[in-house]
């Protein structure tokens, strides 16, 4: 008899424990669901607050001037392309097309120069031994942290002496000399993670180091190089201080300066022109980002980045 009562005790205790465990599980599930809902709510709320200004910008660029400061909504009541048409003309003898072309003329050589020089330098750091290597590599880190503000004035004086003011050279040349330490650093990190077996094999097959670089290393570096080019494109597109200091004639203005000029010269109530040109100014960067976002996110996670 005692055995049976003991067994039933054990049994009821087991059933209680099971019920307790189930209840616990239900509570946990409910908690997990509430916490998931909270997370989505926060993310969605923050996302809306963050992106709405940009969405509003696009909508507002199609509004009439009277509506911009009266309607917080996205959809214009009387859509008009007046802002784009008049903004494109600008108050200068040139259209915005000219300024986009200037931006392109700055970006293209600068990006190509960056890609070539940084690849060479990163290859040198990652695959060769030479005197002062440690010191030189520390200088890369030092440049990474060095505030530009301290070298800007002598650089200006230097370019002035060289007669480069009001040309694109001050914007091109420092980058084409692997001056953007961040890219060098990123490529060196990338190269160090790749074993050099393939390069050894190429060497044995009679390639010299330049051929190895061009036919073996560059293809392997391709994803990192794409990141480099994309970042350089975006930064140059957004760069304002560089052109502000070095470019003085309007016919050489890139879009960033042209936009500032149109704020200064447009009459006080022609808001939609400025907003329309702002939309055009950010479009290339956004388009590139959405086409190649994988490379951006990888680039930042790999090297850490400003911005």
């Amino acid at each position: 008899m005692t055995d049976i009562s003991q067994a039933s005790d054990v049994f009821t205790a087991g059933a209680d424990a099971l019920a307790e465990a189930r209840r616990h599980q239900r509570i946990q599930q409910r908690r997990a669901r509430i916490s998931a809902i909270m997370r989505y709510a926060i993310l969605f709320g923050v996302g809306l607050v963050m992106l709405y200004p940009l969405i509003w910008l696009v909508g507002a660029s199609f509004k009439t001037n009277a509506e911009i400061f009266a309607n917080p909504g996205f959809i214009p009541r009387e859509p008009t392309t007046e802002g784009y048409v008049q903004g494109w003309e600008t108050s200068t003898p040139y259209t915005f097309g000219r300024f986009f072309w200037n931006s392109f003329l700055i970006i293209l050589p600068k990006t190509i120069g960056t890609a070539i020089s940084c690849t060479m330098v990163a290859y040198g750091f990652a695959r060769f031994d030479f005197p002062l290597k440690k010191l030189l590599f520390s200088s890369v880190i030092a440049i990474l942290l060095l505030p530009n503000v301290v070298t800007r004035i002598p650089q200006y004086i230097l370019f002035r002496e060289l007669g480069w003011l009001d040309s694109f050279l001050p914007l091109w040349v420092p980058s084409a000399m692997a001056g953007d330490a961040f890219f060098v650093f990123m490529l060196v990190q990338f190269l160090r993670a790749i074993p050099d077996d393939m390069e050894q094999a190429a060497r044995v097959d009679g390639c010299n180091s330049w051929q190895t670089l061009l036919f073996v290393v560059v293809p392997m570096l391709a994803p990192a190089l794409i990141s480099v080019c994309l970042f350089q494109f975006m930064w140059t597109m957004n760069d304002f201080l560089g052109p502000l200091i070095y470019i003085s004639s309007v016919d050489k203005y890139p879009v960033s300066l042209a936009l500032k000029l149109s704020i200064d010269t447009t009459e006080a109530f022609e808001w939609n022109r400025i907003l329309a040109m702002s939309v055009l100014t950010i479009t290339p960067a956004l388009a590139v980002f959405f086409m190649a976002q994988k490379y951006f996110i990888e680039g930042i996670s790999a090297g850490g980045i400003k911005g």
């Binding site: 963050m50 200004p53 936009l259 704020i263 950010i282 956004l286 911005g307």
Partner: peptide
């Protein structure tokens, strides 16, 4: 969340 950083220093954003 990354989009605003992409436009970062752009003058257009300061205008906005």
């Amino acid at each position: 969340f990354y989009v605003p950083s992409i436009l970062g220093g752009s003058i257009a954003i300061a205008v906005l």
